[in-house]
Design a protein around this nucleic acid. Structure first.
Lengths: 210, 210, 210, 210
DNA sequence: AATGAATGAGAATTCATTCAT
DNA sequence: AATGAATGAATTCTCATTCAT
């Protein structure tokens, strides 16, 4: 993939095309969108796209990968400074998470990935390597530790992790992608607070909390 | 060859076609799947499909609607018998929920809906009327009541509801649709237990529990 | 053709079907019309048509032939009773001709014949045998005679005939088929009178008339 | 094979395609002709046609319109130079008219127009605006004037006009389109002469002529 | 005789991809 | 590097015809 990096350097064309691609693909869906539409959106012509991307599918994968990377880069790193109030920390972290996850960039890319998951195998790799492993395992470790210290209830760490992290994703999907926000509008701050309260209190042993 | 081997089956045809359609659509995606493939899968010819469905899109919508209905019909109704242990009840209910949600039928239909959500407006209606309104509002009421009785923490009922119900959906999506079960296999019983524990303890006030 | 006469006797189905066919074909055109539409118009089902007609084309030809025959049967025979005023006779005959030619039956069948003339060779035979030879040659003879008697100007008989007879057809085509009557409405009586005047005076030597 | 033998010819393509279209449509009929056949006839591929025409129907209409325009441009303008012998003038004009009307271009386009008259509404507009109004009304005016001057018999001007102009069309239709020329061959010069004689003498008052 | 379910060969149209300019 | 004309394979939908009932 990065073997073509030089090819794409000459200008900022690739980025320009990938942005347009995400916009168009997300609007129409990968299959329904045409290369002409992408070219139009990028302000160039169809042929030019093929100077930078081998095929529609490659363009799709690269565009998704780039967009995803942008999002992941924005996510706050999970760190605990000793001495801080863990519940307060959790809430603050939650808000930051949600801010990123409930953005348009995420709403654009999620359905694209889900839709083409079976047809474009690379997406699976991306999901596994970029999303699953970069977050789930870290958090699972934390919970494991908490359990060992007697602070956390007896739960399956991976499951609790998925529940915790996935909750943010869940609201991004329902509210933004599926448009539930039109029927049941929700304040991101409230969402974060609720997730934090429920998951935090749900995970921590009662005695361990003030 | 088998050109004259057909039988008249006007009664069964629509169901037969819709089943094949879901299978093929879910395998290839709505756009990528061809009517020929659907016909093959149904053991009939292309033309026959058009005797029962006006267009590929109509077939898609009807097939999705039917499949969704089947799933919804399987979901256990949420009832509490007075006197029962609420935590135990929650767990049992959770297992039943997960059994249905982590089934192939759901894994098939979810990506289809998400993928075509923007292109086929009816899907939005289906989501709103069949899914959102049939579950979320009921549970939100319960939580509201619990809050009024001082049993439930101070959370936003709609958000807590989404978190509670959506959690099941979340695992269905990640494990079954996105295939995370290959990397992080999870036992449905454990998932249900974890959700129940975390959400139950996370929602209920500590003093209210034994 | 009449070899199938027995087949069609059992009922009046063939006539019923042919009438419907002309209606539908004339409305939509031969190619654009479907057998389903014809069947609907006839109040029966598609399959039944094939009990009486081998194919769509055969139905078309037979229906056209029948309709044409009906029209031709209505045309007045051209006869002169000795002693009658020839100009008056011409006008009377002209009106009768026009009444038939400017009817719906003719307006229906003309475009059908013209449209499919090249694709369905039998139509050429029908035109030659049913239309050309049954009228043109008779009238041409008359004119030839008139010329020999010194009553008629020096014109080519076949051409004059075509001009005379064709004039009626011309108005049928332009007014009824092409819809010119909406822009330039014309009274059939006036048309007949004009044709009669012009052609009569144009053909007859001046000295021969009062 | 010749897959890579194409040349860019954006300027000539539309005309090239329309010519091929008229040829194929006229040979097979609009509905029966396929876009593949048109493409073949034009020496290009199907897809290319759609770069220049939105649909088969649009191609048809434009091709007919162009062909019709070509024909109309060839028709001599009707002018009388004072002092000229009107009967001689009429005949000369008639020959020129017939030369154009009895050409292949006309024979090709007439059945197409008539056949699709009901299905393609634009054809009606073309007929009314390009044919009816561009000729009939002018000539009708002349006749009206002649009547006022006492030179022309008492006829309905619009009808006489249609008769006069339509006669040429009539022969074009019967001889060329319907192929009557195979049975009753006619010399265009004779046709023109006959029409001229009959219509001229038939319209003009006897006393007004030498 | 009549039905209408089923067939399957097409046809119009679209669009990713190529390549001469 | 960029263009956009040209390609042609693929796809949806149609409909004349057949034939089990």
């Amino acid at each position: 993939m990065s073997s073509k990096a030089w090819k794409r350097q000459p200008e900022k064309r690739p980025a320009q095309i990938m942005e347009a691609a995400i916009r168009v693909f997300s609007e129409k869906g990968f299959r329904a969108a045409t290369m002409d539409e992408v070219a139009d959106a990028a302000g160039i012509t169809k042929g030019t796209i093929y100077l930078y991307f081998e095929s529609k599918t490659e363009l799709f994968v690269e565009a998704v990968r780039a967009q995803l990377q942008e999002v992941l880069d924005l996510l706050p790193s999970i760190q605990y400074e000793p001495g801080a109030d863990p519940e307060k920390l959790t809430k603050e972290l939650g808000v930051k998470f949600l801010d990123v996850l409930m953005s348009e960039k995420v709403a654009q890319v999620i359905p694209l990935i889900i839709a083409e998951f079976k047809n474009i195998p690379v997406l699976k790799q991306i999901y596994f390597s970029e999303i699953l492993s970069k977050s789930d395992f870290q958090v699972a470790n934390l919970i494991e530790m908490g359990k060992a210290l007697g602070l956390v209830r007896d739960v399956e760490p991976m499951i609790a992790t998925r529940l915790l992290l996935g909750s943010f994703f869940l609201f991004a999907l329902t509210q933004e992608v599926l448009g539930a926000k039109e029927v049941t509008p929700m304040n991101p701050g409230d969402i974060a607070a609720t997730i934090a309260t429920v998951c935090f209190r749900g995970l921590m042993k009662t005695e361990a909390l003030p």
